[in-house]
């Protein structure tokens, strides 16, 4: 033991339980899935070739990417506005804002999806209200289409967009902006040429975080899309639980996984990953 201590720090002994568990029960099967994507049903790149044959799969991938991009754009713009307001207001107001943000963060995804179902249906509260005040003659189709999926997803992602931006904006020295104004820049010049570039790391982190989380999103698209908007996550679940085709599902999962890892790598260039999640390494 003594001899071992000299080479390996004792700290590793208490790291080991979690590390081994994650390697054995998580990393293992994920590698197995990557392996399946090139071996099931037969060895080779047959599964990947399916992407180029026929347009059903490509359409699903394209729908997913398009919805994720739109979700990300809206969530980050809204998130920027909220974070900006939070940083530039009195402490008391900021506390209230943070409370609302965190409460929405904590409310169960199922409760929120259920709420949208009640609000957006043909006889939902939104349509009934709009008809009552005479704004629309026909109920608007909010559900079973991309609009409903987008509303639900943006609603879920906004808090995730706010948090990295908040971290980034709080670290900015207000005196830089004062200096810019003193040197004769207008308010909007100061914002676009000084403030915005300084929040760029937070902006990149928040964009990538929301995009990554949207990619694998399952609950909201499945419910609000009502089977009409098929995204990769739902397609994977159908392949596994209904048609039992591991190969195709594994191929889609592999593409998604590599995409996510690539984005994480880009993100780590801009911001320490642990900061994004609200903690900090030493």
């Amino acid at each position: 033991m003594q001899a071992l201590n000299r080479h390996i720090h004792t700290g590793w002994l208490i790291i080991a339980p979690l590390l081994l568990m994650v390697v054995a029960l998580y990393l293992g099967p994920i590698l197995n899935i990557l392996w399946l994507s090139v071996t099931d049903p037969e060895p080779g790149f047959g599964n990947y070739a399916k992407l180029t044959e026929g347009d059903a799969l490509i359409r699903i991938v394209w729908t997913t990417v398009r919805i994720c991009i739109i979700t990300t754009v809206f969530s980050v713009i809204f998130g920027y506005s909220i974070a900006y307001a939070m940083v530039h207001c009195h402490q008391r107001q900021k506390t209230y804002m943070l409370t609302l943000l965190l409460v929405s963060f904590w409310i169960s995804i199922l409760v929120r999806t259920f709420a949208w179902l009640m609000l957006l249906g043909r006889k939902g509260l939104v349509n009934v209200t709009l008809e009552d005040i005479g704004l629309v003659a026909e109920p608007i189709a909010f559900m079973r289409n991309e609009l409903g999926v987008l509303i639900g997803m943006v609603h879920y992602m906004i808090p995730y967009a706010v948090l990295p931006l908040l971290v980034s904006m709080q670290s900015i020295d207000q005196r830089v902006m004062d200096a810019s104004r003193n040197l004769g820049a207008s308010g909007s010049q100061t914002f676009w040429r000084v403030y915005l570039p300084m929040t760029m790391p937070g902006l990149v982190a928040s964009t990538l975080l929301v995009f990554i989380l949207s990619l694998g999103f399952y609950v909201t698209p499945a419910v609000l899309g009502g089977g009409k908007v098929l995204m990769v996550a739902e397609y994977i679940s159908v392949q596994l639980l209904v048609t039992l085709k591991w190969g195709t599902a594994a191929m889609l999962a592999a593409i998604m996984l590599f995409g996510v890892l690539a984005m994480l790598w880009i993100m780590s260039r801009f911001m320490k990953l642990s900061t994004v999640f609200g903690g900090a390494a030493r």
Binding site: Y26, P29, I33, I212, L215, G216, F277
Partner: peptide, 25 residues
């Protein structure tokens, strides 16, 4: 630090992939 980054992965890898992995094993 590498191990720390690795251990954070379950939080960021899309849940559907985690679900597949657990189901598989």
């Amino acid at each position: 630090e590498l191990v720390r980054a690795f251990l954070l992965l379950p939080l960021i890898i899309p849940q559907i992939i985690s679900a597949m992995a657990f189901y598989r094993l």
